[in-house]
């Protein structure tokens, strides 16, 4: 086992009068790919900054059992990749890689070079000369080749085009399989990463909405589609998080500890029972305006 275990207890972070995170209790197991989801301003970046010891809050934060703040032994093994990048802007990419090779105990230079070729980056270029997509790719390369026991990607692939993202996902999965470590992926492109995640943590307005095994979450949601009155009859007693009407047809999304026998009964009554993709579930749970309209 090489990955770090993450734990927070009643973590609260404020910037002046603004509270970015409130009372976060989180446990993320080592050597897994964790998804960290939330709308803009939900507190994802703040949480990752605290785990990367860039920021300090109130409450407890433990990375592999230790307080990460100003803890050099932990910090050198924690890699947070942000879209903006944390690079030596006046130095060539290859010089940046040399610097990282010195700073990161597990940095794999050979792997970094091969990724440079994969993403078609010119090592002689300087970070400021890169396009947005190239800068994203370089961030991804740094994150992957650092092989840090805790690696966090904060929207790093947002600047990449679809083929580059595909390569990024491939590399994350391949390198994770060969060199297990704790990876936190934060992204708005939920449908693209959904099945890569072993756990899903959703922040909403600075609070922890849920943190679950992806498998458990997958079986916790269902859509019931059919004639409105039949759908309503079967949805009674279940937690309904979304409703959509198409003429006489209604689709409700139910979420929670579902009664499988009741779902089977719904199917026998002619309803279509379907899965709820993670992205849909995320929208239902965090689209507060819509949730208020519905209630």
């Amino acid at each position: 086992m090489t990955g770090y275990r993450l734990h927070t207890d009643n973590l609260t972070v404020s910037y002046g009068k603004t509270t970015a995170l409130t009372g976060i209790n989180l446990d993320l197991a080592p050597d897994r790919i964790h998804g960290l989801l939330g709308r803009n301003g939900a507190g994802k970046t703040t949480l990752m900054s605290v785990l990367a010891s860039l920021r300090r809050g109130q409450g407890t934060v433990r990375v592999e059992g230790q307080d990460p703040f100003e803890n050099e032994a932990i910090m050198q093994n924690v890699c947070l990749i942000r879209e903006s990048g944390d690079l030596l802007l006046d130095e060539k990419l290859t010089t940046n890689l040399s610097f990282l090779e010195d700073a990161r105990p597990r940095f794999d230079r050979t792997y970094a070079e091969s990724l440079m070729a994969t993403f078609r980056l010119d090592p002689a270029k300087k970070p400021q000369a890169l396009s947005r997509g190239q800068a994203s790719a370089f961030g991804a390369i740094v994150g992957l080749a650092s092989r840090a026991p805790l690696t966090m990607f904060d929207e790093v692939h947002l600047g990449m085009d679809a083929p580059a993202r595909q390569r990024f996902y491939h590399e994350v999965l391949h390198d994770f399989a060969e060199h297990p470590r704790t990876i936190v992926l934060s992204s708005h492109l939920i449908s693209e990463i959904a099945h890569m995640l072993e756990t899903v943590t959703i922040l909403h307005e600075g609070r922890l909405l849920l943190s679950n095994e992806a498998d458990d979450l997958h079986v916790s949601g269902a859509t019931l589609t059919g004639a409105a009155e039949v759908v309503d009859r079967h949805a009674t007693g279940q937690q309904v998080v979304g409703t959509q009407d198409l003429g006489p047809t209604r689709q409700v999304t139910v979420f929670g500890d579902l009664d499988e026998a009741a779902l089977a009964a719904a199917e026998r009554d002619g309803l279509t029972v379907g899965a709820v993709p993670l992205q849909d579930l995320f929208i239902h749970l965090t689209d507060t305006d819509r949730a208020e309209e519905a209630s």
Binding site: Y169, L173, H195, M196, E198
Partner: peptide, 13 residues
């Protein structure tokens, strides 16, 4: 590993 990268799923899955 092949399965995970081909179908873009977690290797543990």
């Amino acid at each position: 590993t092949q399965y995970a990268t081909t179908y873009r799923i977690n290797p543990a899955t």
